[in-house]
């Protein structure tokens, strides 16, 4: 076994050296697609290049990636409920108070990140992650989704991001244009709509992943 570990390390070291050599052989100066992106920024509807790539130039990737997130949740739900983690102790007053203060703050921060994504670092995923953190905090204090919200309302919220994105993507098709080909005049508004729904769906999906089961399941073990 010891000889095997030694051999493995040697092979991995060789791999690292080989890959490192390949990386170092890349040219010193390269801009990739930056000039192309900057040249088309005025038609993208936003002013931040990363958001322009994510939601417009390569928006199709982002659409599929929303489907990946939804898929992870479907996968977890199809496992039929995870063994419940038993908290070591009841949530204390510190966690309770902290949650009361933090959750509203997190929601505001998420809204800000969503809005600022159009012209500065930020956007739907960062905002959704913050929203998801708020959901996790709430669950840690023992909060659970009310029964009447656990069925269709939850499911609709989970798919809203990808569904709205699909609708916006397909809108240009009847006019003979391409999938996701926004009219530059409305691109900014459409991107904001897509991102707003995506933020809520991402946040709720992340929180639901943490919960680990379909809340309408009869007996999550």
């Amino acid at each position: 076994m010891a000889g095997y570990a030694w051999l493995l390390r040697l092979l991995l070291l060789l791999l690292a050296v080989g890959l490192g050599y390949a990386v170092l052989s890349l040219p010193d100066q390269a801009q990739g697609l930056q000039p192309d992106v900057l040249g088309k920024m005025d038609q993208s509807g936003v002013t931040h290049p990363v958001t322009a790539v994510l939601l417009n130039f390569r928006g199709y990737d982002t659409l599929l990636e929303m489907a990946v997130l939804l898929l992870a949740l479907l996968g977890i739900w199809s496992l039929g409920g995870l063994p419940e983690a038993r908290p070591e102790s009841e949530p204390g007053p510190v966690l309770g108070t902290l949650t009361q203060v933090l959750v509203p703050v997190l929601i505001v921060v998420a809204g800000y990140l969503l809005w600022t994504g159009a012209h500065a670092p930020g956007g739907a995923f960062q905002a959704g992650a913050v929203l998801g953190a708020a959901g996790v905090l709430l669950q840690l204090t023992g909060w659970r989704l009310p029964r009447r919200a656990a069925g269709h309302p939850l499911r609709i919220t989970l798919v809203a991001g990808v569904a709205v994105f699909l609708i916006v993507a397909a809108l240009p098709l009847p006019g003979g244009r391409q999938l996701l080909e926004y009219d530059p005049n409305y691109a900014g508004v459409l991107i904001l709509v897509v991102e707003a729904f995506a933020t809520v769906s991402i946040g709720v999906t992340l929180a639901a992943l943490f919960f680990g089961a379909d809340p309408t399941d009869k007996a999550p073990k």
């Binding site: 130039f57 080909e181 926004y182």
Partner: peptide, 13 residues
Amino acid sequence: HHAVGGWGAPLGI
């Protein structure tokens, strides 16, 4: 052939 978003490679997909 379908250039998603109307951009075309290399900028688009």
